[in-house]
Write a protein that binds this DNA or RNA. Structure first.
Length: 216
DNA sequence: CACCAGGAATGTA
DNA sequence: TACATTCATGGT
């Protein structure tokens, strides 16, 4: 006879979080000095290694182009040169221009923060270059709203550990948001810890050997 | 040399 | 709706 231990999805997701938190500790995300910098970094890191984003942000700071209002004003070809290390610089220069002019055109982040989360999300999604993950990253880390960010690593985690059949963005986001307390601090650390896990252990290895979640 | 990185837009069926 | 292609630099 088997000893069958049934976990609720809530308990399982919290257990995964506890394992990761015990292993890696607090991650102190988002790695930026200002809210404006979070928005800029969210666009620059699209399908790009963070080390390359750091070079781009370093260039922007040296050039004095680190506030969203600076992005609006700066010459586009200069902007492309500054962010070149982050890759896709033609697209990303355009994307930065569009999100910066959108936010500044609405009175800045402080004015937009008066909107409720659902409305704010749809507004962000209407901006060229802002998809679901970028919008949710901005909502969680810049606006401090309890929104779970789903990235490629999150999908891989859910897939490998068979936490859900539905591997779509919305399906995975619902999995976390319907089974966990809607807590900004929890979602902040959870997403950051998943990225940390991937960087340390699971680059491309199918079985994650040595990974702290191996026993799950 | 190939492959990947904290995606999104666009086009096709 | 579900895939395929394109965008581009720097590390492994």
């Amino acid at each position: 006879m088997f000893l069958v231990i049934k976990f609720t999805m809530r308990e399982l997701l919290l257990e995964i979080f506890n394992i990761l938190y015990k292993e890696f500790g607090k991650q102190h995300w988002w790695p930026a000095e200002t809210k404006d910098e979070i928005v800029i970094g969210a666009v620059l890191t699209q399908n790009t290694a963070w080390s390359n984003v750091e070079r781009a942000i370093s260039n922007l700071k040296k050039a004095g182009v680190i506030r969203l209002k600076d992005i609006v004003c700066v010459d586009e070809s200069l902007l492309k040169e500054l962010i070149k290390p982050a890759g896709f610089f033609n697209q990303k220069a355009l994307y930065l221009k569009s999100i910066a002019s959108f936010i500044e055109g609405h009175g800045g982040l402080s004015s937009l923060s008066k909107q409720d989360t659902h409305k704010l999300r749809s507004m962000l999604l209407s901006v060229k270059g802002v998809g679901k993950e970028t919008a949710d990253s901005i909502l969680l880390y810049a606006f401090e709203r309890p929104v779970f960010v789903v990235d490629a690593y999150t999908k891989r985690l859910v897939s490998r550990h068979r936490l859900s059949e539905d591997l779509s963005y919305d399906g995975i986001q619902r999995l976390f948001m319907e089974n966990l307390p809607l807590d900004v601090g929890l979602f902040n650390e959870y997403h950051a810890l998943i990225v940390k896990l991937a960087k340390v252990y699971c680059k491309k290895k199918p079985l994650c050997s040595g990974c702290p979640l191996e026993r799950l």
